[in-house]
Write a protein that binds this DNA or RNA. Structure first.
Lengths: 228, 228
DNA sequence: ACCTGAACACCGTTCAAGT
DNA sequence: ACCTGAACACCGTTCAAGT
C-alpha cells in the first residue's frame, strides 16, 4: 500500500492546528486528545509529534490560531476607545470558539499572539499618556477581560442544580434568597430570554473599569498604598 | 489477613476530601487522580467511589472543603467595607491552597459553600441599598475577584519563555516594548522582589471596582443601554 | 456496610523501525 | 523526511465478587 493515501498531502503544523480547532469546535475541548485528533487526520498518534511538541504545545497552538483571527483595528478615538475596540475584537474572535475561553484561562500563556494582544493594549494606554506603572496595574485590573470574556459566575441557570450525580445534597434555593432575587429579577427584566445577557454584563464591567481608570488618570494618579 | 489493617477506621467522605486536599497541597492538583489518592489512603481505587461520586464530585468537594475554612466576618462598616472584608477572607482561605484557584475557575461551581459566599456578597450589596439589578451586574463585574484572586496575566516572569519545548520559536522581547517597559518598571520599583506584587494588584483592582460601583450607586444608577 | 480484583476503554509519550 | 508498531506507564469507571 502507498506510504500515504494518494490524495493526501503530508501534514504540517498549520493543518494539524486547523484540524484541532475544528475538532474542538465540533466536539468540545474534552474531545482533544492526541489519539482522537490523529484519528480525525487519518494518521497514527505518533505522526502528530513531528508537527507539534506535545499536547501542551498543541493547545497553545490552538489558542494561537484563534487569536490570529483578531483583525487589526483602526487607530481612531482616544485610548479608551482604542482599548475598547481591541478587546471587543478579541471577544468576537474568541466567541467563534467557545472552548478557547477555558483554554486561555488554563494555558500558561505568553505565546506570540497572546503577547501581541497584550502589547497592543499596553501601547494604547501608554500612547494615551498613562504612566507605565498605572498601565501595569490596569492590565491586572482588567484581567481576563482583556480577552473579551468575564469568568462565568453563574454557569447556565443560577442556583438550580443539574443532573450530575453528586454525594452532597443539591442546595436549597431558599438558603440563597439574594442570589434568587438576582436571577428572578434578571429573568423578569428580559422575558423569554436566558437569565443573563452576557454581552451586557461584559460591557458593563469593561466600561466600569475603563471609566474608573480614566478618572484615576485625569486625577493625576501616582502609585499609592492600598495594601492588604 | 484482616479486612482492614487493625488501626485503620473505615473511610468516610470527610477523610477522603481531607486527604485529597492534603495531597493537592503537597503535590499539586495534577497529582489528584482516583488511583493516586487511593494509594495515599492505602486503599484500592474503587473504595473511593463509596464516599465520593467520582472525580468531578471529588474536586467539587475539595473546593468545598477549602471554602468552608472562610471565617464569618463581623458586620461592621458600610457595604463596601463588608464586601471587601468577605472577599479578603476568601482570599486568605484560598491562599493556603494555591491549586484551589484553578479548581474554582475550572469547576462548574454552585456547591453550597460557593453559593454561600456569593449569597453573602449579594446580601452586603442589597442591605447597602443597591438595587437588585445593580447588584447582579456588579457581581459579574467583580467576577472571579469575589474569590480573592485575579487571573494570572503574566504567569511568573513576564515575557521570558520557560524551558518547555515548543515548536514555535520563543518570542523576541524586542517585539513587545510596552510589556517590557511594564515589567522593567515594576522590577525597578521593588528591587529584589518578584516583578509583581500580587496583593497590591489584587487590592488595586478590587478597590477600583468597588469605588466605581459606589459612584454609580450614589449617582442613582438605573439599568442603562451599554450594548455591544 | 465496606472494600477488592479483574476488566474495559481510554490517555500521553518513548523508542526503534519502516518507506 | 515523514510516518508506523509495539510498548510503557498511566487514567476513570463498570461490575461482580469477597468479608
Amino acid at each position: 500500500m502507498p506510504p500515504r493515501p494518494p490524495g493526501r498531502p503530508p501534514l504540517d503544523r498549520a493543518t494539524v492546528l486547523a484540524a484541532a480547532v475544528q475538532l474542538a469546535d465540533a466536539e468540545g475541548v474534552d474531545a482533544i486528545s492526541m489519539r482522537h485528533l490523529a484519528d480525525a487526520l487519518d494518521v497514527v498518534p505518533m505522526a502528530l509529534y513531528k508537527h507539534v511538541g506535545g499536547k501542551d504545545d498543541l493547545l497553545d497552538g490552538m489558542v494561537e490560531a484563534v487569536l490570529r483571527e483578531i483583525p487589526g483595528q483602526a487607530r481612531e478615538g482616544d485610548w479608551k476607545a482604542q482599548v475598547r475596540a481591541a478587546i471587543l475584537a478579541a471577544r468576537r474572535a474568541i466567541g467563534e470558539h467557545p472552548w478557547a475561553r477555558r483554554a486561555i484561562e488554563t494555558r500558561t500563556v505568553r505565546s506570540p499572539a497572546v503577547l501581541a494582544h497584550m502589547e497592543c493594549l499596553v501601547q494604547h494606554f501608554l500612547r494615551g499618556g498613562l504612566s507605565v506603572d498605572l498601565t501595569h496595574h490596569v492590565m491586572h485590573a482588567l484581567g481576563n477581560r482583556i480577552w473579551g470574556f468575564s469568568p462565568e459566575l453563574f454557569p447556565e441557570g443560577s442556583p438550580a442544580p443539574d443532573g450530575a450525580r453528586r454525594t452532597t445534597a443539591s442546595p436549597d434555593p431558599g438558603d440563597y434568597p439574594g442570589i434568587l432575587a438576582i436571577s428572578a429579577d434578571a429573568r423578569a427584566r428580559r422575558p423569554g430570554a436566558s437569565a443573563c445577557d452576557e454581552d451586557y454584563e461584559f460591557t458593563f464591567a469593561l466600561d466600569l473599569m475603563l471609566d474608573a481608570v480614566e478618572r484615576l488618570h485625569t486625577a493625576g494618579w501616582s502609585s499609592g498604598p492600598t495594601r492588604l
